[in-house]
Computed example of a mutant assay.
Amino acid sequence: MRKIYVIGIGAGDPDHLTVSAVKALQRVDVFFLLDKGGERAGPVDLRHEILRRHTGGHVHRLVEIPDPERDRSTDGAGYPGAVDAWRGRRAALIERAIAGELDGDGGPDGARTGAFLVWGDPSLYDSTLAVLEEVLARGRVRFEYEVIPGISSVSALAARHRVGLTRVGRPVQITTGRRLAEGWPDGVDDVVVMLDAQQAYLRHLDTDPVIHWGAYVGTEDEILVSGRLSEVAERIGELRAAARARKGWIMDTYLLRRE
């Protein structure tokens, strides 16, 4: 039986890997790396650095899988369908890679164990688990898989700003910029926002919450800003635009806290 590890590799610092993750890395025959293209070279380079530091000399192979483009022109009711279609294309590529590179009997080079290195934590805002379930549901390739949790960008952000995500007796909600743009979630005053390409926080200047913002958290390019939204929103926008122009991509997360 083929074995797949889905390993959370943290928010950017190779030292943030758990001991369980390091041990798993040293049992893997084939690492599958999803390549998003030149503008996302940074995350791929980080994965190579993690393997260099933490595989302990264990012999392994790297297989790069070109990640299919997702249709980002759809919005509203069409958005879930676009995501499902993209996951289907990704599942087909991953299915082919697992079948071709791993074999239940060991294959030509004895490769039975594969792994996907997931940015942050595999259980938070990542599609790898859903895609692997789709591959299994197709029934063409069999494997078992194990999830190794990692440090998410959410926990790393809170740690770097030295704040707790919750306050006594009050909930916190994790959402996307797309949903925040539709309005502040009901029943919560603390909102963590991920995947915000449109800077949806600007729609909430009237309530003037505190914002704890971070980009490339855990990496040498880390940028942190904290303060009243009305006072720091312009600075965040400028830093964000400059960083995106410099690197070609940006990964940022923030906590909005309403008094």
Rank of each mutant, 00 (worst) to 15 (best):
R2M: 13
G12F: 00
P14K: 08
V19M: 15
R27I: 04
D29G: 09
F31C: 00
D35S: 09
K36Y: 00
G37T: 05
V44T: 13
D45W: 04
L51D: 05
R53M: 14
H60W: 15
R61V: 15
L62D: 11
E64I: 09
E69Q: 15
R70Y: 10
D71N: 15
R72A: 13
G78M: 10
A99P: 04
G100D: 12
D103K: 12
G110Q: 06
T113E: 08
G114P: 02
F116E: 00
Y125A: 10
L129R: 10
A130G: 10
E133F: 03
E133G: 06
E133N: 07
E134S: 13
R140Y: 13
L157I: 11
A159Q: 09
R160W: 04
R160P: 01
G164Q: 04
G164W: 03
G169E: 10
G177P: 01
E182M: 14
G183Q: 12
P185W: 07
V188Q: 11
V193H: 01
L205V: 14
P209L: 07
I211L: 09
V217P: 01
G218C: 08
T219D: 07
I223T: 14
L224G: 10
R235Q: 14
G237L: 14
L239H: 08
L239A: 12
R246F: 08
D252V: 06
D252G: 02
Y254N: 11
L255S: 02
L255R: 01
L256C: 06
R257P: 08
